[in-house]
Amino acid sequence: MTETDGNRLTVDDEIVARARIHAREVCGEVGEYDLDMDFDALEWDVSARARRRAGLCRWDRTREVATIILARRAYERYDWPEFAAVVRHELVHAWEYQCFGESGHGPRFREQATRVEAPRHCRSFSDPRYRLSCLAENCDWQAERHRASQPVKSPDQYRCGDCGSSYAVTHRESGRTWTTAHEFGGAKAALGEEW
C-alpha cells in the first residue's frame, strides 16, 4: 500500500490506476492503437472474489456505461505485460458495447483484439479443480472445470461431449473420482476441509 496526503491507497486503487493509464495509452487519438472510446462512459472495479477469470466487462444498457472488472488475484499472479493484455481484451469488449450495444468473441472482436494486441481469450490464473474424462475405451474426451457445477456434482445426468458415453469426474488435488451424484457426496464428505 502507498500513502498519499494521509490517505491509504490499496492494491485495488493501484490496479485501477494502472489500468486507466494503460487504457489511455492504448485508446483514443493519442493512443497507440486508436481504439476510439468514450472514457466518460467507462467505469472500473476490482474483484477480490474472482478465482479464474482475470477480467470481465459488463454493460449497463440503461446508463450506456461499460464497467471493466479486473481480478486482484490475476494482478498479483501475472506479470504486467500479461495483465495489460487482459486490460486491452476488456477494452475491446467495452468498445464493442459502446459502438454496438453487444459484445462477444466473434469476428469483429477478433479483428479489434488483433489490432490492439489483446488475446482472444485470457488465460485463467488458477488451475481447474476438476477433470471430466470419458469412460469409453475409444474416446479421449476430457474437460476441466473450476467449480462444482451440475455436470461435476451429477455426472450420471450428463454425457461425454464427443461420443455421448458416461464420464468420470476427478478431484485433481486429491485424485478422488466419481461417476454419480451419490459418489460426489461421498468424495466431498471424505475430503472434509481438504475439499
Results as ranks from 00 to 15, higher is better:
12 D>F: 00
105 H>P: 04
102 E>A: 08
50 A>P: 08
150 Q>F: 10
71 A>R: 01
185 G>D: 14
69 I>E: 15
154 S>T: 12
98 Q>C: 07
47 S>H: 03
157 Q>I: 04
21 I>C: 10
80 W>Q: 13
119 P>R: 00
114 T>M: 14
183 E>Q: 14
181 A>W: 01
146 H>V: 05
151 P>D: 06
176 R>I: 05
160 C>E: 01
101 G>M: 01
58 R>Q: 09
74 A>R: 00
179 T>S: 12
72 R>Y: 03
175 G>W: 01
144 E>Q: 15
129 R>C: 10
145 R>M: 13
128 P>A: 13
176 R>T: 04
151 P>G: 04
87 V>I: 13
107 P>G: 08
136 A>W: 01
105 H>I: 05
13 D>P: 08
30 V>P: 02
28 G>T: 07
149 S>W: 14
16 V>N: 07
157 Q>T: 12
33 Y>T: 04
10 T>E: 12
161 G>P: 00
126 S>R: 15
127 D>H: 14
160 C>R: 09
132 L>K: 04
104 G>D: 15
192 G>V: 09
132 L>I: 09
148 A>K: 02
132 L>N: 04
110 R>F: 03
134 C>E: 03
142 Q>W: 12
111 E>A: 14
13 D>V: 01
32 E>N: 06
135 L>I: 14
143 A>I: 08
162 D>Y: 06
141 W>P: 02
61 R>F: 02
101 G>H: 00
189 A>M: 09
131 R>W: 00
155 P>G: 05
34 D>V: 03
185 G>M: 10
165 S>H: 10
5 D>I: 11
84 A>G: 03
40 D>S: 13
126 S>M: 09
132 L>H: 10
15 I>M: 05
6 G>V: 02
58 R>W: 04
22 H>R: 14
60 D>Q: 07
38 D>N: 11
156 D>P: 10
40 D>P: 06
69 I>Q: 15
92 V>H: 02
103 S>W: 05
140 D>W: 06
106 G>C: 07
50 A>V: 07
38 D>Y: 01
89 H>T: 05
